[in-house]
């Protein structure tokens, strides 16, 4: 009887422990949000949000805090990298999952996992050695532009490489769990493999692929170090894709340490973090809603 009691008490103790930990995590998110809002109050009390977001002058020494260059920089880098990465990674994921013999397939997936695990600074370092000269000497002249190589386009190329593993692994996974009967029925009607992929598999695996793309967007959007290393870090409105720019996380890394003493500047940087947080929150919730909607509509089992 006594032993019974200890077991139940232990059960209760662990439940309490878990509840405490979960509430601590929830508290962390709330604390993060409150901290970001409160610390960015200073800058918001001096300028309106529109002034901050739509002015293009960034000069903390003169009290000018315009985020427009960084906002457009982030936008172009993210969108361009997704434009490069999405077709390539979906096509290669389809090839890996549908055409490749299963023995080679597992090796490929190992490679993709390795790519996913490579730290972002290493991407940046390699890009400095390969992609920057490539953009400067080959791609730039191809488009008839003179460029130093440290530009938005190079940053997008690096980011694309970091997005590949995210989209590829999720797409391969969601293609892999489709029932075999689905493919066999369609092929038995005389369709080619690509027709099968186009008409059936993309629809059936759609929710997975779309959530993979949104996750890839998240990774590209929040990536800091690799971009800072190759984008050139000039806080100007970019005249072309081959000119140096700036991204939102880039500003924070570039100026947090030296400007710790100026409270207004610090507050501006924290306001940037708040923007990042809100956008990430928005896209995550959006991804969830899309996934659930599509799941109920595109069910194949």
């Amino acid at each position: 009887m006594k032993k019974q009691n200890t077991r139940i008490i232990l059960d209760k103790i662990f439940k309490c422990l878990m509840v405490i930990i979960i509430s601590a995590v929830l508290l962390f998110i709330i604390a993060l949000l409150i901290m970001l809002i409160r610390r960015s109050q200073l800058i918001l009390s001096r300028y309106t949000i529109w002034e901050l977001l739509f002015s293009s002058d960034w000069d903390p020494d003169k009290g000018l805090y315009g985020f427009l260059p960084a906002v457009t920089g982030t936008f172009f880098v993210t969108v361009l990298s997704l434009l490069i990465a999405v077709p390539i990674s979906i096509l290669s994921a389809v090839y890996i999952s549908e055409y490749m013999p299963s023995t080679i397939k597992s090796y490929f997936q190992t490679f993709i996992d390795v790519l996913a695990g490579i730290p972002s600074v290493v991407f940046g370092l390699c890009a400095l050695l390969v992609l920057v000269p490539l953009t400067r000497d080959v791609i730039g002249p191809l488009f008839g532009v003179k460029t130093t190589g440290m530009c938005v386009f190079t940053a997008a190329l690096v980011l694309a490489a970091m997005v590949f593993p995210v989209i590829i692994s999720i797409t391969v996974e969601s293609l892999g769990i489709l029932p075999v009967g689905l493919k066999e029925q369609f092929l038995s009607l005389g369709a080619t493999k690509w027709q099968l992929i186009e008409t059936v598999l993309f629809r059936a695996a759609g929710p997975g692929i779309i959530s993979g793309i949104i996750l890839g967007f998240g990774r590209a959007f929040g990536e800091t170090m690799a971009v800072v290393m190759v984008i050139g870090n000039k806080n100007i409105l970019i005249p072309s894709l081959f000119s140096p720019g700036q991204t939102l996380p880039g500003i924070i890394v570039g100026s947090f340490n030296e400007m710790m003493s100026v409270p207004e500047h610090q507050s501006a940087l924290i306001f940037i973090s708040l923007i990042l947080f809100v956008i990430v929150l928005f896209f995550n919730i959006l991804a969830n809603i899309i996934k659930n909607r599509l799941k109920s509509r595109w069910r194949y089992e």
């Binding site: 990536e223 800091t224 924290i270 929150l281 995550n284």
Partner: peptide, 25 residues
Amino acid sequence: LRVVFDVLWGIPSILYGIFILNILI
């Protein structure tokens, strides 16, 4: 709760740094 953890995963790592830095300050 799983959605919450997905959001946490998606937060750029620099935000974690800023949060702890603010506590330090």
